[in-house]
Amino acid sequence: MEVRTIKVFTTVDNINLHTQVVDMSMTYGQQFGPTYLDGADVTKIKPHNSHEGKTFYVLPNDDTLRVEAFEYYHTTDPSFLGRYMSALNHTKKWKYPQVNGLTSIKWADNNCYLATALLTLQQIELKFNPPALQDAYYRARAGEAANFCALILAYCNKTVGELGDVRETMSYLFQHANLDSCKRVLNVVCKTCGQQQTTLKGVEAVMYMGTLSYEQFKKGVQIPCTCGKQATKYLVQQESPFVMMSAPPAQYELKHGTFTCASEYTGNYQCGHYKHITSKETLYCIDGALLTKSSEYKGPITDVFYKENSYTTTIK
């Protein structure tokens, strides 16, 4: 009895394709271990004539594949690729409408935090270190965002349907971005203890939790000093293409032309909904596939993004 075979390709990165001759009487799992086709788990399936010449994702289970996976995804987590594939199996079914010149995501599976993050990423200057993220990001900007969303979920250790947080998501993504040249110098002034300067680099240099107003941050924000008295913390120097200011959701007025974009969060910790506000020729609110415009805006804002380049204080 002759062994019926077909020729397929296996890959971990969709760049390096490895030619395989597979036995049609055995499952993919018996031949390769966990195997995925377009995100779908085909591990328990036997090869079919229609699979001839198709590319299958496999887990990096030998040295060659491990090197290829690390170079593309910059992670050695053995569960990463499987999590990416199972997320992709959902995100490829989502709709990605162009809204006001940006790629958004039609609401499904509690994905409003991903839509808000995706919209924000198209408006701030950011370059990702893992080629996987950078490639998928370019495709997302062009309207094909399924891979990018699935990668975000995998890097953030999230599953489809789980509630997510924009600030946490951005923080994970910033860790995989090139923020080497970003720098922030802060000064804390206390009447009792004097003053202390701190220099922050990388992710810490672009994120701040405690106030939404970048102007206020430049002037000074009140913080408790270690001595128990009130101290003032203010920005001395900022070198970065953008800054992200966050605070627990509270009524906040966004003035046209003073910011790049913002995240609105309605609801409580267990259950809520994100919308995205962007400042173009007027203010726009993007909620999944829905767009509304207004000249002014007041609502429960939790993150505001500002364009920056270089700032030095005039406070002496």
Rank of each mutant, 00 (worst) to 15 (best):
K183M: 10
E52R: 12
T159Y: 12
A262K: 00
Q238A: 04
L102V: 07
A289W: 05
D303F: 00
G288H: 04
Y96I: 03
T91K: 03
F80K: 04
N147I: 09
I105A: 06
Q20M: 11
M209E: 10
P300D: 11
Q196E: 10
M245R: 00
S294V: 15
T260K: 00
F9T: 09
S279H: 05
K280R: 14
A231D: 01
D287Q: 00
H273S: 00
L151Q: 02
F56W: 03
D180L: 06
K219C: 10
T103A: 06
A145G: 11
T314F: 14
S263M: 08
R139G: 09
G299A: 08
V160E: 02
G220P: 11
R66E: 12
N49Q: 12
A108M: 07
V3R: 14
D13P: 07
F305N: 00
I124H: 01
K307F: 09
I286G: 02
N89K: 15
K219P: 01
W94P: 03
Y72S: 09
T120W: 02
V67M: 14
T302I: 00
E2V: 10
V99R: 10
L59F: 12
S181N: 11
P47Y: 04
Y84L: 06
L151E: 03
V203G: 06
C271L: 14
T43V: 07
Q196S: 13
I315V: 14
K307A: 13
K316H: 15
L173N: 01
D109F: 04
Q134W: 02
A87G: 07
G257F: 01
Q122T: 04
D180Y: 10
N309H: 12
Q20P: 07
S295I: 10
Y269V: 15
C112F: 01
S246E: 01
M26P: 06
A140M: 12
Y208I: 11
L81P: 08
G161T: 02
V304G: 00
T27Q: 14
K307Q: 10
C271Y: 11
T192E: 14
C182T: 02
P241E: 07
K307N: 13
H74T: 02
A108G: 05
K233C: 14
K219I: 11
T116D: 06
Q20F: 08
R184Y: 01
E215F: 03
Q216K: 14
Q134G: 06
Q123E: 10
A136Y: 09
V22A: 15
N268V: 07
L126T: 05
Y73G: 03
V67T: 14
